[in-house]
């Protein structure tokens, strides 16, 4: 046995504790992972947008079946559905996907197109509208979303992105989700700029096909902009942030001269509008 040493040696520090700049390491890691994630997200968004419209509509319809929401005004629903059917029938060729309209008892003026060819319109929206033409524009716009398969495209987009985030962040890692999940918020279930523009154009074409003109198409948008000046409808503006831009585009598409005849709303709808129920305000 060798003799014992005189003392414990003083070993160099850097062997087991290499010098490092943790902040720099953190920054480069975030940049690297962020870049790859952004690239993958972009790719998935593009793929989802390209592929989703090719999902057969009957699969989509089978997945959502019937609307669980109650129908507070069956007669108004019937009138809305009739208007939607007339609008669609005026197109040549008529759109392939059937649409069902439902009036919701909500005060916030809004309209949604959702999966399964369902269009939801709030009572609040009905109250901002005075003519059938204004309502037809809203309906035609949502029909446009449905014919373009926008709801399923949006759902596919957020589903694949959600899957990507979950795979990378490990599902329940709060820190990672917060760090990278913020950009995931951009993928909320809303239609993007191009989808809105395309649906607007589709709706204008539909109005012209049905009425012979697009007069009154901007009624709903003008009304919500006017209401927005008073500070309400924040929520609506968050889901439709491009209203002003859209009004401008719409007005350029409207007939330049002359007041075309606007049709009145169907009676079942008129009795729910602002003029006929002033006591609710």
């Amino acid at each position: 046995m060798t003799p014992l040493p005189d003392g414990n040696p003083r070993l160099p520090e850097h062997i087991n504790n290499p010098p490092q700049n943790a902040l720099l390491e953190f920054g480069s890691l975030v940049a690297m992972v962020g870049l790859v994630m952004a690239g993958l997200t972009l790719l998935l968004v593009l793929l989802a947008g390209l592929l989703a419209p090719h999902i057969p509509f009957r699969w989509e319809a089978a997945a959502v079946s019937d609307l669980p929401l109650e129908a507070p005004w069956p007669q108004a629903d019937a009138a809305l559905n009739q208007l939607a059917d007339e609008l669609m029938a005026s197109m040549d060729p008529p759109p392939a996907i059937p649409v069902q309209v439902r009036l919701l008892d909500m005060q916030t003026p809004n309209a949604f197109a959702t999966l399964g060819g369902h269009v939801l319109i709030t009572r609040g929206l009905l109250e901002t509208i005075t003519s059938e033409n204004g309502l037809a524009m809203v309906l035609a716009h949502e029909i446009g979303h449905i014919q373009h398969r926008d709801p399923i495209a949006v759902l596919s987009r957020s589903a694949v992105i959600g899957l990507l985030w979950a795979a990378v962040t490990g599902g329940d890692n709060f820190a990672m989700q917060t760090l990278f999940g913020q950009s995931g918020g951009l993928t909320a279930l809303s239609f993007n700029r191009d989808m809105e523009r395309r649906a607007d154009q589709y709706a204008l074409d539909m109005l012209v096909a049905h009425y012979g003109h697009a007069q009154g198409a901007d009624e709903f948008f003008l009304s919500i902009v006017a209401d927005h000046e008073t500070g309400s409808w924040q929520t609506l503006f968050q889901s439709h942030p491009l209203t002003r831009e859209r009004i401008k585009a719409l007005q350029q598409a409207l007939p330049a001269q002359g007041e075309e005849e606007l049709r009145p709303l169907a009676p079942a709808l008129r009795e729910l509008t602002r003029q006929d129920s002033p006591e609710e305000h």
Partner: peptide, 27 residues
């Protein structure tokens, strides 16, 4: 600590040595 945890979580994605843990365990 939180910072080391984050660095380690990021390292898990790209691989490599986790220096922040090395010094911790050395100590």
């Amino acid at each position: 600590d939180y910072f080391k945890m984050m660095i380690a979580a990021l390292r898990n994605l790209v691989g490599g040595s986790i220096g922040a843990f090395e010094s911790l365990l050395d100590r």
